[in-house]
Simulated scan of single mutants.
Amino acid sequence: MNNKSRKIGAIVAVVVAISAGTAVTHRRAAKQPAPGPAAASAPVLANATRPPSDQAVTALLALPELKAWSEWIEKKSKGAAHGAVVADSSGNRTINGRSYQAYSFVENDAESAHFWQGFYVTPAGDSILVEDAATGDVVSVDEWRQKDKPLERLKEN
């Protein structure tokens, strides 16, 4: 699945906003419009049909790249936007015989969520793969760091 096919507004999601070293979780059901400015801070009801794994989300949030991106987004937007992890509603994907859930890291503000990177994480959080948005291929976190140099995105902006 590439970033063009991700429909952030129509996702059964857990959005984890990363702010000042803490994580705040908001759950949103499929096909609900994204909350507007007045509702941005209120949690929205969860769709419990496919809850994301807390261990998977914790493992993903531990990546130094996501921490750095979140801090940069917060600083650049003067607190108006935050880094967030969104669980994709498309279900699990089997890769090399293991089940992975799809997640996206997004820049989340009161109006919208802007896709930054796709990930696949096992429910136990013991394996993270990174999706190449152009091809849909997945690589290990180490390969992604070597090939894409994700922390350099912050230097470009």
Score class of each variant (00 low, 15 high):
132 D>F: 00
128 I>H: 01
49 T>A: 12
18 I>A: 00
24 V>I: 14
11 I>Y: 11
157 N>A: 10
83 G>A: 09
54 D>N: 12
123 P>L: 07
130 V>P: 03
152 E>F: 02
55 Q>V: 02
56 A>N: 11
54 D>K: 11
134 A>H: 15
40 A>F: 15
85 V>R: 04
74 E>F: 14
105 F>H: 05
152 E>D: 15
71 E>T: 07
17 A>L: 08
82 H>T: 11
146 Q>Y: 03
102 A>H: 13
153 R>Y: 09
146 Q>T: 09
60 L>G: 09
39 A>E: 14
68 A>I: 06
108 N>D: 15
37 P>A: 15
13 A>M: 03
92 N>P: 08
121 V>W: 05
54 D>Y: 02
52 P>L: 10
117 Q>C: 03
40 A>M: 08
88 D>F: 01
142 D>Q: 09
135 T>F: 00
103 Y>T: 08
89 S>T: 08
126 D>L: 00
156 E>T: 13
139 V>W: 02
83 G>T: 02
68 A>H: 06
50 R>E: 03
151 L>V: 07
14 V>A: 05
27 R>T: 08
138 V>Y: 03
34 A>V: 12
81 A>Q: 12
5 S>R: 10
81 A>I: 01
38 A>W: 03
133 A>K: 06
31 K>E: 15
119 F>E: 02
58 T>K: 10
119 F>Y: 15
19 S>D: 10
95 I>W: 04
156 E>V: 11
14 V>L: 06
36 G>C: 08
55 Q>I: 01
8 I>C: 01
30 A>S: 14
154 L>I: 15
80 A>S: 09
3 N>W: 12
151 L>A: 09
135 T>R: 03
55 Q>G: 00
2 N>H: 10
79 G>C: 08
151 L>I: 03
17 A>P: 02
139 V>N: 05
47 N>T: 08
61 L>S: 14
143 E>G: 02
34 A>H: 11
120 Y>V: 02
147 K>L: 03
62 A>Y: 03
58 T>N: 13
24 V>N: 09
26 H>W: 10
38 A>L: 13
25 T>V: 13
16 V>I: 08
26 H>F: 10
137 D>P: 00
100 Y>N: 06
102 A>W: 05
155 K>G: 01
116 W>E: 11
87 A>T: 11
35 P>N: 06
52 P>W: 00
48 A>R: 09
28 R>Q: 13
57 V>Y: 07
